[in-house]
C-alpha cells in the first residue's frame, strides 16, 4: 500500500492532455448547436468563444473572453473536452475559465490583448494552456511561462492557409537547425531565439518540442488540413472555416477525415466532394499590417 497522495495540475497531466488530442481537430464554436455539430463530426475538442475570428475581424471592437453562461451550456452539452479563450495577459479571465471547469485555456491573439508586455504566468494554474507561436523562440518563451501545448498562429479568420504554412515551416525548420548544431553553437542559438538554454538544448536533443504542436489560423478545407498534417502538425484547430461555410456539418466531418487520413490523397479527394461553399477568404496580403493578429504576442 503506497501513501503517495494524488497530485493535480502537474506538467505531465497538462502536457499529457494535449497528447490525447493528437491526430484530431479542435473546432471553434459559439453556441450549443455548433458544439453538438462539432462533436457529431468527430472533433476531439471544441473551443468556446463569443465570435469566430472572421466576425471579430469584420466587426472590429474589443474582443474578450466568452460569457460564462455560454461556456457552462457548452460544457453541459458535449462529452468531449471544452477549451476557451482568454486575452493575452488577462490572468483574471483565465482564473474565471479555470473556475468554470474548462479543460484547456487558449491565451489567444484572436482576442484583444490585455497586456502588451506580459503573458499570463501559466504555472499558477491547474488548468493547462495552449498558446500561439509564429516561430520557435516564441514557442519556447510560451513554454517557459508554463504553456502545455503550442499551436502555430497562422492568420485567423481569413481562410488563407499561407501564414499557417509559414509559421509551421518556420518552427519545424528552426528545430531541424538546432539538431545539427554543436553544443557551443546552442548557446548562441538560445540567445538568438531569446529562449532559455536548457529548453533549447532539450529541443535540440529530442528533435521536437517537448509538447504537442497543432496548427491554426486559416485552415478552411480538407486539403488545408492534410497539407498542415503533412508539414508536421500534430493536429488542427479550425476556427471560422467550418461554421462560416455553406454546409458546416459536412465540412466538419470532411476535415476530421482529412486530418486522420492526411497521407491518403484518395480519401482526402473523396471527402472534398460536395462540401458546398467554403468560407469567403481574405488574402493575408490584403490585410493592413496593423490589423494582422499574428503580430499580437511577443
Amino acid at each position: 500500500m503506497s501513501n503517495v497522495p494524488a497530485v493535480v495540475g502537474t506538467e505531465r497531466v497538462k502536457r499529457g492532455m494535449a497528447e490525447m488530442l493528437k491526430g484530431g481537430v479542435i473546432m471553434d464554436v459559439v453556441n450549443v448547436e455548433q458544439a453538438k455539430i462539432a462533436e457529431d463530426a468527430g472533433a476531439v475538442a471544441v473551443m468556446a468563444l463569443e465570435r469566430v475570428p472572421a466576425d471579430i475581424r469584420a466587426e472590429g471592437g474589443v474582443s474578450r473572453m466568452s460569457d460564462p453562461d455560454m461556456i457552462d451550456a457548452i460544457v453541459a452539452a458535449v462529452s468531449i473536452p471544452v477549451m476557451a479563450k482568454a486575452r493575452i495577459g488577462h490572468f483574471a479571465e483565465a482564473q474565471i475559465l479555470q473556475s468554470l471547469g474548462v479543460d484547456y485555456v487558449d491565451e489567444s491573439e484572436v482576442l484583444s490583448p490585455a497586456d502588451y508586455a506580459n503573458h499570463i504566468d501559466k504555472w499558477q494554474f491547474t488548468v493547462p494552456f495552449v498558446c500561439g507561436a509564429t516561430n520557435l523562440g516564441e514557442a519556447l518563451r510560451r513554454l517557459t511561462e508554463g504553456a502545455a501545448m503550442i499551436r502555430s498562429k497562422g492568420e485567423a479568420g481569413t481562410g488563407d492557409v499561407s501564414n499557417a504554412v509559414t509559421h509551421m515551416r518556420k518552427i519545424l525548420g528552426q528545430i531541424r537547425a538546432l539538431t545539427s548544431m554543436s553544443k557551443d553553437e546552442l548557446y548562441v542559438a538560445a540567445k538568438e531565439l531569446q529562449a532559455p538554454y536548457d529548453l533549447v538544448k532539450e529541443v535540440a536533443d529530442a528533435g521536437r518540442l517537448p509538447v504537442v504542436l497543432f496548427t491554426a489560423g486559416g485552415i478552411a478545407t480538407p486539403a488545408d488540413a492534410a497539407l498542415m498534417m503533412q508539414l508536421g502538425a500534430d493536429g488542427v484547430f479550425v476556427g471560422s472555416g467550418i461554421f462560416k461555410s455553406g454546409d458546416p456539418a459536412k465540412r466538419a466531418d470532411a476535415i476530421v477525415q482529412a486530418t486522420m487520413h492526411f497521407d491518403s490523397p484518395d480519401v482526402v479527394a473523396k471527402v472534398s466532394r460536395g462540401l458546398g461553399e467554403a468560407m469567403v477568404g481574405i488574402n493575408v496580403a490584403d490585410i493592413p499590417v496593423h490589423h494582422r493578429l499574428e503580430d499580437r504576442g511577443w
Partner: peptide
C-alpha cells in the same frame, strides 16, 4: 471522465498485480 474534468486530472502511485512489488506511477487524464 469518472474522476472529473481536466482540472481534476492527477498522478499517483498504484500497486499493479503481475508487474512486481514496486508501485506503478499512474497518470490519469480525464
Amino acid at each position: 471522465n469518472a474522476f472529473g474534468r481536466q482540472v481534476d486530472s492527477f498522478e499517483t502511485d498504484i500497486g499493479i498485480a503481475g508487474v512486481g512489488p514496486d508501485p506503478v506511477h499512474a497518470v490519469f487524464i480525464r
